[in-house]
Simulated assay, not measured.
Amino acid sequence: MFTELCNKIFDQSIADYHLHNSVNQPILNPYEKAAIEHLLYLKNWIDTVQWHLEDIIRDPLIDPVKALEIKRWIDRSNQERTDVVEYIDSYFLEQFRTVSPLANASINTESPAWAIDRLSILALKIYHMREEATRADASAEHREACQRKLDILLDQRNDLGAAITLLLEDIGAGKKYMKVYKQMKMYNDPSLNPVLYAKS
């Protein structure tokens, strides 16, 4: 199943990141650029770096200049994440280009790639909740509470994986159809953000 491939690559990306555990380390994507695996690894790497940036920026003693630098980094990361999601949807549009939707075909609330985006974030939640559930310097109560949360996250990943699999099967059978809307983010566009175009 495609979701099993996703989970495998997301776990690989997270493990690779934590070999050095630094937001400044370069990505070493092991997959060929033309392969969907390359996009999945890139997608999760962006999410993983951003996860740790979000931790860093919440330090109450962080230097305000450093915080602004990280906030802008997170903004760039969000744009990159959106771009990669759209590339993944382009892959699916190509996969299903010969499928003719049935007369009663319906559209899903989100595209396959945006559902896979949630699967990537779930992989990160699972990794870090597992860390907390096994943290040697934490109390037994903390570990037990985190284990209960981990069990829910694992169940959620199974459910989301099953839903994505069904969505892909339905698109392939013509029961659902894909319609992808580009994320028309306005705040990054100098011609659409009034703060930016007022200065030009």
Rank of each mutant, 00 (worst) to 15 (best):
M1T: 12
E4N: 13
L5Q: 14
N7K: 14
I9V: 08
F10P: 06
Q12T: 08
S13P: 01
I14Y: 00
H18C: 00
L19K: 15
N21Q: 09
N21M: 04
Q25H: 04
N29W: 00
N29D: 00
P30Q: 02
Y31L: 04
E32S: 11
E32N: 10
A34F: 08
I36C: 09
K43N: 13
K43D: 14
I46N: 09
W51P: 07
H52Q: 12
E54R: 14
D59C: 02
L61E: 14
I62H: 02
D63Y: 07
A67E: 13
E69K: 12
E69H: 09
I70C: 02
K71I: 04
R72E: 15
I74W: 04
D75C: 03
R81P: 05
T82V: 10
D83C: 00
S90N: 14
S90M: 03
Y91M: 02
F92M: 05
F92Q: 10
L93N: 07
R97C: 11
V99F: 03
L102C: 06
A105Y: 07
N108E: 13
W114E: 12
D117I: 01
R118T: 05
L119R: 08
L119H: 06
L119F: 01
I121G: 06
L122S: 06
L124D: 00
K125M: 09
H128V: 01
E131K: 14
E132I: 11
A133V: 01
T134Y: 06
T134G: 07
A136W: 01
A136N: 09
A140E: 15
E141M: 09
E141R: 09
E141G: 05
H142L: 10
H142A: 13
Q147V: 03
L150I: 05
D151T: 07
L154P: 06
D155A: 15
D155H: 13
D159M: 11
A163H: 08
I164Q: 01
I164H: 05
E169M: 07
D170Y: 01
K176C: 12
Y177P: 05
Y181C: 06
M184E: 15
M184S: 12
K185D: 12
K185M: 09
D189T: 00
A198V: 02
S200M: 12
